[in-house]
Design a binder for these strands. Structure first.
Lengths: 173, 173
DNA sequence: ATGTCTGCAAATCCTTTGCATTTTA
DNA sequence: TAAAATGCAAAGGATTTGCAGACAT
C-alpha cells in the first residue's frame, strides 16, 4: 500500500530532508566515525545524492556535480565506500544497472519505475498485494513488479568458518 | 505466503516438468509458431535451462552445455531471442547481473536467494507481508527483500507518438 | 608529516556487433 | 536454395586497477 504522508507527493511520502537534522552533516558524521576523510568530492557526491533523492545512475550523478567536481572514477570509488558504509543503497531495476540512492535513516521502502521514461518514485510502507491495483488507480499502466527475498540459508549458517557472504549490496535492506 | 503444493520442496512448489507435457516440445512449438528455427544450440540451451529450473547466469549456462555445444555468443543471442519471446524470464538479483530462468507457463512467482552461497529457491504464490516471517521459520537468517514495481506513468501514456519503452525485460512479469 | 584520496591512463570484464560460413526449413 | 543462425574476431561500454601526485587530519 502506498503510504500516506504530510507531503503531497502523488505516490506518498518523500523524505523531508529540510527538517531531518542536516542530512549532509549526518552523512559526514558517519564518514568520520568510520575513520574516513571528508573530502570535497565526497561532499559534492553526497550533496548530489541528497538533491536527487531518488535512485540515480553513477553517470547521471557525475553529470549532476558542478563543473567537474571530480572524476568519474572517483564517483565509482566513493559510492563503493558509501555503500559499504550503508550511507547509500544500491537498487537494481529492470535494466540491470545499479542505481544509487541516499540512505540516511535506513528507511525501508520501494519504488515505482516508469517503463517508458525510467522515472523513479518512492513508495513507503511495506508492500501489499494491493499495490498494483492502487498504482493502476493512480494512472499507471502495464503495472508489474519484481520481488526477491534474500537471506542466509540454514546450510550456510553451519559453515560459519568459511562464511564470506556475497556482496549483498544493501539493495532494499 | 509460500505456496502449498504436491511437491515436498521445502519452500513450496517447484514446477513439475515431468507431467507438464514435454517442456522442450512446448518451447520448440513456441519457437516454430514465432517463425524461428529449431537449431541444435537452441535446443541444447533450452534443455539446460529446463535442467537448471532456477535462474542461471549466461556463463553458467554455457558451462552446462555438453562439450561446447555452442559459442558463448550464441548463448547470449539465443537468450535475447527467448526473452523477447517470453520463453525465458530475466531476473536481477543483488549482484546486478541478470540470471535467466525458463518460463513455459508464465507462472508468476518469486525467489529466495541465499546471501551466502547464492542458491536460489522458488516461492510460488503472490507475495505477502508474512513471507519474511515464514522464511525465518524455515531457518533463513538475515532475511530481507527487494520489491520494485514497474509501469508506464500517466505522463508517458500521453506522448504515445515517441513512445519507446525501456528494454523492460520481463523480469517478474 | 603521513597515510588517505584523487586523477589519469590503462587494464579488465561483460556484452554486442560485423561478416563469412553453416544450417534449417 | 534462400533466409536465418552460428562462429569467430573485434568493437564497445561500463567498471576496476595501478600509480604518482594532491589533500585532509
Amino acid at each position: 500500500m502506498i503510504a500516506s504522508s504530510p507531503s503531497n507527493h502523488p505516490l506518498g511520502a518523500v523524505t523531508d530532508f529540510s527538517r531531518a537534522g542536516r542530512p549532509l552533516d549526518l552523512a559526514c558524521a558517519r564518514l568520520k566515525s568510520a575513520g574516513l576523510r571528508i573530502t570535497q568530492p565526497r561532499v559534492a557526491i553526497i550533496e548530489a545524492l541528497i538533491r536527487r533523492e531518488h535512485p540515480v545512475s553513477i553517470e547521471q550523478l557525475h553529470h549532476d556535480l558542478a563543473n567537474d567536481a571530480c572524476d568519474l572514477v572517483t564517483v565509482y570509488r566513493c559510492l563503493a565506500v558509501f555503500e559499504e558504509l550503508g550511507l547509500v543503497r544500491r537498487c537494481f531495476f529492470h535494466n540491470g544497472t545499479g542505481l544509487y540512492e541516499i540512505n540516511l535513516n535506513d528507511s525501508h521502502h520501494h519504488h515505482i519505475v516508469c517503463k517508458s521514461c525510467g522515472k523513479v518514485e518512492r513508495i513507503d510502507a511495506s508492500f501489499t498485494e494491493n499495490t498494483e491495483r492502487i498504482l493502476r488507480e493512480r494512472g499507471y499502466e502495464q503495472v508489474t513488479h519484481l520481488v526477491e527475498f534474500f537471506g542466509v540459508c540454514p546450510a550456510c549458517q553451519k559453515k560459519t568458518a568459511e562464511f564470506s557472504p556475497l556482496p549483498a549490496a544493501s539493495i532494499t535492506r
